[in-house]
Amino acid sequence: MWHETAQLYLDPDAGPGEVADELQRRAQGLAGLKYFSLGRNLEGSWGAGDFTLDLCFASNAFQASTATSLAQLPGVSRVDRVAYERLGGGQRAVGLQGGIWRTLLLRVRPHRDPGHVAALERDLLRMPAYMSGIRNWQLSRVCSNSGWTHVWQQEFARVDDLQGEYLIHPFHWGWVDRWFDPEFPEWTVEAIAHAFCPLATSILTHPLSLLPSENEEFP
């Protein structure tokens, strides 16, 4: 399977509802598409677009046609789209419904020590062990031509679990933040885009999303 996520940026005068309706219509005709999810980003998203779009294809053979279709979407001024390969993740809430979908795009500094990058990845994947509000999660490396290097995705039951426990947790600020802060010698991540949107039903526990041998579970 070929997994992609994208941030869609709308023209100032575009109607979000009309754009969403047209994208839903076009998605039905995308060759090789297995499933897709579209959510309008909520207030508090930072460095992100107006919508988060997630796509899963049968293979990577359909990139050109998808790029053309998205580029011609009325009302959309820019599409920041990446494909990714999963490093690891886990689940606590199979089939979660009515939740929050959070996508963090990160860019690691050029020529950064590979050991620091590996430690960053390990620390991100440790976060759910300290934060029960993260219901399902996945860390991936970008495998397409992009300025981003990683995709860190989580599913929450409610927005307060993201904006509360996740963002203010001591493990976040006392340990993980050092990879993102230029004042620390471990500084590794030079740019991020933080987007979150309503989630109708779980993406990360969808059968096509899972690599069972890599799943980690915490109580």
Rank of each mutant, 00 (worst) to 15 (best):
A119P: 02
E121D: 11
R122L: 10
D123I: 10
L124H: 01
L125C: 07
L125E: 10
L125G: 06
L125D: 08
R126M: 11
M127T: 12
M127N: 03
M127D: 05
M127A: 12
P128R: 04
P128S: 05
A129S: 15
A129C: 09
A129V: 12
A129L: 14
Y130T: 11
M131N: 09
S132Q: 12
G133L: 09
G133S: 14
G133N: 09
G133I: 08
I134G: 05
R135Q: 15
R135F: 04
N136H: 02
N136Q: 02
Q138D: 07
V142L: 03
V142E: 01
V142I: 05
N145M: 11
N145I: 11
N145Y: 10
N145R: 15
N145K: 14
S146Y: 07
S146C: 09
G147R: 15
G147N: 09
G147I: 13
W148F: 05
W148A: 06
H150L: 07
V151L: 07
W152A: 15
Q153E: 15
Q153T: 15
Q153G: 04
Q154R: 06
E155K: 04
F156D: 00
A157N: 10
A157K: 10
A157G: 13
R158T: 11
R158A: 14
R158W: 08
R158C: 08
D160R: 13
D161Y: 09
L162I: 04
